[in-house]
Structures are given as structure tokens and as C-alpha cells.
Design a protein around this nucleic acid. Structure first.
Length: 654
RNA sequence: GGACCCGUGGCCUAGUCAGGAUAGGGCAUCGGCCUCCUAAGCCGAGGGUCGGGGGUUCGAAUCCCCCCGGGUCCGCCA
């Protein structure tokens, strides 16, 4: 048989089914051709590899029971079958399904040979419309370490970038360094009070401690003052409410004092000497925006220190960026001011007290965007405050300028940002419409994901309540090392270290990519460091097993008789491998990295079942062994390629 | 109060956009399987009013309406 290679084997089968069905429908009644011919995956192999539901639709039109029509299709298709090599048979079933059964000899051959021939490219079907895409992800403020909650952002973003690249887009990955906000001024102020110390630990952890303590002391000072100053004006309830918040922060202070005793006591001491730390922070923030050289030097120093720590973490996790975009640069270049002025010239900005407000609601109404934005008609979108009364800028306003810059440099911009910023992202988008950038606005995508919380409480950078990504990776890697030390004692120390890195980090990545991004995750160590079924390591293990078989095989096989692969489990594996390209396309075109995780897990499942029940190397006759070896190789390639899209290493041994 | 998201066995989760055949997995529990390619594995068992109620449909976890529960947002924070 002629050897063929397809980038999408199941797609070929799907096309044949559709073509055949259309031919048959034309014979029955040309009007049927207008029906949507959607072919679906049947729930059970006994119903074939694809199924059509067209008879249920068409039965009304032809006033014929669905099953009768299905039988008619079955009968007519018999004479056409010869033109469609990947099809074995068509049969009417159930209430009126038309089931398509594949010719497994040919589908197996096409699938396995394609996977092996395309190797590192298998599954990565290229788009017909390559775009320039900017993916902005992580963008953790440079004031505390990357914690496991923001790691969800990092890994989803990284996976999206990998998937889009594999799809043939030109992808540029950006990190937005938010150094302008009040938070940066707070941490810089604390850092200055401490006399700009050299970090005594990993720089981002060190900065995170300073930030949490400084912020906490500021909050306590502010709340106490508030209670004191307005003792007589406050209602009883109001005063009680503030006292409760204060109590909360005092509890935070106790936690922080325990965790960072040195920083805490030094900062507490320094704070007592300052009359009004609050205004000093505000001054620093203002000076920074104005480009005051002392403020610039200080805040850039703190931010860079923190970023240095991020880069260590990200490098370990295998995450890279093409561009680090400093928010402050957009202020100093005048972009933000220009953008603000332009916005003020539109009819959508009004004054409210000392500040300008952006009337997002009117834009949505005038441009008829409510429905497209997923909002109810009667819901009034809140306005957006564009600046502080002291003249400094606000985050979303700065983000408008940044977004325009990104959109000028790309066909599509994907922002991986927490779902809690949904409203702000909508307001931002509406501002682009108001500015006359409708085309750009449509190409701006907010990829939203939900929070990772601890059981019973929120992760909070401001309170210093978090588990860092570093800790999570350390813990996962050390557990992986124990495991690998037990089972693969013959590996060198270096190999063991390397593999435990892959496995531990793979576990964390998988756990954060696998769940639907819109669902909140409750953090537990057992969930994030899972090495059992439905985990990164489970897939890696399956890959290593496939490698192990191939390593031990006495010969390299380049062709085989695939008609010998008759076991149902073999067919299931082949089908999954064949479907990988279309699952990949779905993941790429709908931004769904989690379905790659799901797919890889299913394939690993099937492969392990196969592994346990059927011999490969010792299979008899040798021709069967050959065919299985090639199946194992195709599985290995597909698992590896799926793992790659999640940024998970595929070790050959573990 | 309003808007958005989520609700699937004890716990976690796929399927919901594009409605179809006995609702897939995993954890935990119980019972089996290593002189045989890595047991991070495999096989089997029990366990489900798909949050509730209406509706549309030949057919609803999936679509529509109402309600309930949880989360998020509604800041001169980011």
C-alpha cells in the first residue's frame, strides 16, 4: 500500500464521512444538502467512530421516521463506499443514527505513520491565517513573590503562547511591570526606611516581606487615626466596622512579626519616628510619576530587585518572555497623558469633583455593545475614575495607553488577567471604542481565570498570606526526588535531580492548567502535588514507559502491517492519536489549554491499559510486535507533543 | 441591592458554546494483580433526583424562565 502522511488523520476520516453523506443525501433529495452536516463522536465504539444526527432533523422535512431515512442512507451508501478508503461501513442504528465505522487497517496506518513521520510537528496543524499575537501574562506586581495563585496565570499564559505558536502564529510574550501604583511606592518607602538593605533571602521574597509589613503598619496607623479623629462623627455601627477591620490588620501584624521578626521590628521602629508615613508614600508616588530622579532611582531599584527574583523562579519553571514592558515608561513618554487628553475630548468624559470620570455606560449604549460584552440591557456599567485628585494616574487609565501600544504592534492581544478585573477590562475596552479604535478594541481579548484560594481564606499579597511558587516547586520536586530515588536507584545523582525537577514542576503545572480556568481552585498540597492518575507525572510516566519499551526493543521498526492491531484498546489509542490534531486546533482557536491536559490524560490512560494487558516486544508473531512497536512510538510522540504544549517536560526515564 | 461566573456520587472534575444512544474520569472505600517491556501502574465492586421547580423538544446535564446556594465585581486599589 502506498504510504501516506496526513497532518490530521481523523480529519481525513471526517471529511470522507461528510463527503459520502453529502453524496447520498443528494441522491435522496438535493434539499437535504442544505442541512448542517455535523458529525459527532459517538459515546461508544460499538456505534462507530463518527455519527450523524441528520435523520432526526430531516425526518420532519421528508415526513419519514428518522430510522427509515437512516436505513435508506445505509443502503445507498453501500455502492459509494469504494470511493472512501478510510470507511469500512455505514449503518443505521438506534432511533435514527447513521454510524460511520472506520477501516482500521487504513486509519491505523495513516495515523501511526503520520505521527512518526511528522514527529515533533505531529498534531500542530498550522493555521491558514497566521496572526501577530501578543500574549501578556503573569505581570505580577514587583512587590511580592509569584504565589501559587498567580502561577495559574503564568502557566495558563505560557501554555496559550505555546499553543498559538505551534498553530503557526507569530507570538510575542509580554510581561507588564506595574511599577507605578501606590503599592510600589509603599514597598519602596519601606525599603528606604530600612536603609536600602541588601536582600538577606531570595530578592522577591525579601521585598515581599518588606511590602507586607510596611503595608500592614500603614493600614493600622491609618485606621487608628480614622477612629481617633472622627470619634464623635462616627455612628456606633460605623466605628465598630472600622474596629473590626483594624482587628483584622492587627492579626496580620502578629503573623508577620512571627514570619519576619527582623524586618518587622526594624520597620516598626522606623515608623515611630515618622509623623505621617501616609503622605510620604503619596509624595513618593507623585514624584515617581513626575520623573523625579531620586524617586526613579529608588522605585526602579526595588522593582528590579523583585524582578530578579521572578526571573529566577520563571527560569526554573521554563517560562520565558520576549518583552518586559515597564508601566512607568508609558507615563514618562507622555503616552498616558496623550491618551487621557484624547479621551477628554470625547463626549464620554465628565468632571466629578476634582477628577474626570469616563462614562463607560454611554459608550456601550451608543456603540450597541452591551450584548456583545455579555451584559444585560438594563445593567448600568459603572463609570471609571481616570485619575487621582492629586494629579497621579490610575491603573486602568495607564492600561488604556499600554493596550493601544500593544494593539499597534499586533493583530490580536491576549491579556491573561484574573476574572476579578473583568469590569475594569470592559471599561478599558469601551475607552478604546470611545477613542475611535473600534477595530483595535475587537482584537483585545481578556483571557479570564479564577482565583486559587486556601481552604477558608483568600490568598493575599497585601497581608503576606500566600504560598510562593518557589515553595510549591521545592516541595513538589523534593517529593518527586524521594520517589525517583526509590524506584530508579541506578540513575546518576544528576539524572535524578534533573528528572525530579521535571516531575515536580510538571505536577504543579498540570494541576493549574487542568481545571477549567473559570472555576476557582481550593489549594491543597495533595491536589497541586499529585503524582497519581490524572496528573502531570502520570502522563510523564506513561511517556517514560513508552520510551522504555522502545529502548529495549531489539530493532528499530520503520514499517509494519497495521491490520494486525485488532484489539479494542489498540483501536482506542489509534483513534486518540488520530484526533490529537483536531483537539489541538480546538485548543488553539478557542484558547482552551485545559483540553490539552484532558487529552493527554486520556491517552495516558489508554496507553497504560494497553501496557498492562498486551506484550509489545515479546508479542507473537514478530509482525505483530513490529506493529505494536510503531504504535508505542506514535503514542510516545503524541504524549510528548501534548506535554510540550503545557510546558511540561517529557522525561525518557523516571 | 445590581451584574457576571460557578453548582454533576462523601470530595474533586469532563461533558454545557454548536441538545441526541447506558452522564465519562480521578480521590477516598472495598476486593484482586509484580519469577513477564518501570506497580507514579493495571483489573474489578459499590456509590448519581447532573442545585430545585417550571417550559421548549420526538429527545435536556446541555436551550429559555423563575428560585436556591457559593464565588467575584460594583475603589481617587491593582
Amino acid at each position: 500500500m502506498e504510504r501516506r502522511v496526513s497532518e490530521n488523520p481523523f480529519g481525513e476520516f471526517r471529511r470522507e464521512c461528510r463527503d459520502l453523506l453529502l453524496r447520498v443525501l443528494e441522491k435522496i433529495s438535493p434539499d437535504l444538502m442544505t442541512y448542517k452536516v455535523a458529525l459527532e463522536i459517538p459515546p461508544n465504539p460499538q456505534f462507530g467512530e463518527l455519527t450523524s444526527l441528520i435523520c432526526f432533523e430531516a425526518s420532519k422535512y421528508l415526513s419519514k421516521p428518522p430510522l427509515e431515512l437512516a436505513r435508506e442512507i445505509e443502503a445507498i451508501s453501500k455502492s459509494e463506499l469504494g470511493f472512501f478508503p478510510l470507511l469500512e461501513s455505514i449503518e443505521a442504528a438506534g432511533q435514527g443514527y447513521v454510524n460511520f465505522h472506520a477501516n482500521f487497517e487504513r486509519l491505523s496506518s495513516l495515523t501511526i505513520e503520520s505521527a512518526i513521520a511528522l514527529d515533533k510537528e505531529y498534531g500542530y496543524v498550522k493555521t491558514e491565517k497566521p496572526e501577530k499575537i501578543i500574549v501578556e501574562h503573569t505581570s505580577v506586581n514587583p512587590i511580592h513573590p509569584i504565589h501559587v495563585g498567580s502561577a495559574r496565570n503564568t502557566f495558563l499564559g505560557d501554555s496559550i503562547a505555546r499553543i498559538l505558536k505551534a498553530r503557526g502564529h507569530s507570538v510575542s510574550v509580554h510581561y507588564y511591570v506595574d511599577d507605578v501604583g501606590r503599592q510600589s511606592a509603599i514597598v519602596a518607602y519601606g525599603y528606604k526606611l530600612l536603609g536600602r538593605p541588601k536582600p538577606s533571602s531570595k530578592p522577591d521574597h525579601f521585598i515581599g516581606a518588606i511590602y507586607a509589613v510596611t503595608n500592614c503598619l500603614l493600614e493600622i496607623r491609618r485606621l487608628k487615626k480614622l477612629l481617633e479623629r472622627s470619634k464623635d462623627e462616627l455612628s456606633h455601627d460605623e466605628a465598630q466596622r472600622i474596629r473590626n477591620i483594624l482587628d483584622d490588620w492587627v492579626a496580620v501584624a502578629v503573623e508577620l512579626q512571627e514570619k519576619f521578626p527582623d524586618i518587622f521590628s526594624s520597620l516598626l521602629e522606623a515608623f515611630e519616628k515618622v509623623a505621617d508615613p501616609e503622605s510620604e508614600v503619596n509624595l513618593l508616588m507623585r514624584n515617581y510619576e513626575e520623573g523625579d530622579s531620586e524617586a526613579k532611582e529608588l522605585i526602579r531599584e526595588v522593582s528590579s530587585l523583585c524582578l530578579e527574583g521572578f526571573k529566577q523562579t520563571l527560569e526554573r519553571a521554563g517560562i520565558t518572555f520576549d518583552s518586559w514592558d515597564w508601566e512607568s515608561d508609558f507615563i514618562w513618554s507622555g503616552d498616558v497623558a496623550r491618551c487621557l487628553n484624547a479621551l477628554k475630548k470625547t463626549p464620554y468624559v465628565f468632571r466629578s469633583g476634582d477628577v474626570f470620570e469616563f462614562d463607560a455606560e454611554s459608550v456601550a449604549r451608543d456603540f450597541g455593545l452591551k450584548e456583545a460584552l455579555g451584559m444585560k440591557k438594563n445593567y448600568e456599567i459603572p463609570s471609571l475614575t481616570l485619575g487621582r485628585s492629586d494629579g497621579t494616574t490610575l491603573y486602568t487609565t495607564r492600561d488604556i495607553a499600554y493596550s493601544i501600544w500593544k494593539l499597534e504592534n499586533a493583530d490580536r492581544v491576549i491579556n491573561v488577567i484574573g476574572i476579578e478585573q473583568r469590569l475594569a477590562q470592559i471599561q478599558l475596552k469601551l475607552a478604546l471604542y470611545a477613542l475611535g479604535y473600534s477595530g483595535k478594541a475587537e482584537r483585545l481579548i481578556h483571557f479570564a481565570y479564577n482565583l486559587v484560594n486556601f481552604p477558608g481564606q483568600r490568598i493575599s499579597g497585601r497581608r503576606g498570606r500566600y504560598i510562593t511558587l518557589d515553595e510549591a516547586m521545592d516541595e513538589a520536586v523534593s517529593r518527586a526526588y524521594e520517589e525517583i530515588n526509590k524506584r530508579s536507584a541506578d540513575l546518576t545523582e544528576e539524572e535524578k535531580r534533573k528528572i525530579s525537577e521535571f516531575v515536580g514542576i510538571g505536577a504543579v503545572k498540570y494541576a493549574l492548567i487542568e481545571t477549567d480556568p473559570l472555576k476557582p481552585i481550593v489549594f491543597t498540597w495533595d491536589k497541586v502535588i499529585n503524582f497519581e492518575r490524572n496528573s502531570g507525572p502520570y502522563i510523564q510516566y506513561s511517556h517514560a514507559r513508552a520510551c522504555s519499551i522502545l529502548r529495549r526493543a531489539p530493532r528499530r521498526i520503520e514499517e509494519a502491517d497495521f491490520s494486525l492491531l485488532k484489539e479494542p484498546i489498540e483501536h482506542e489509542i489509534i483513534l486518540l492519536i488520530a484526533r490529537f490534531p483536531e483537539i489541538f486546533m480546538e485548543a488553539a482557536d478557542n484558547l482552551r489549554p485545559n483540553i490539552i491536559a484532558d487529552f493527554a490524560n486520556s491517552l495516558a490512560d489508554k496507553f497504560n491499559a494497553f501496557y498492562a494487558s498486551l506484550p509489545v516486544i515479546k508479542a507473537e508473531p514478530p509482525e505483530l510486535s513490529n506493529a505494536r512497536l510503531m504504535l508505542v512510538n506514535a503514542t510516545r510522540i503524541t504524549l510528548r507533543n501534548a506535554l510540550f504544549l503545557m510546558g511540561i517536560e517529557a522525561p525518557q526515564r523516571m
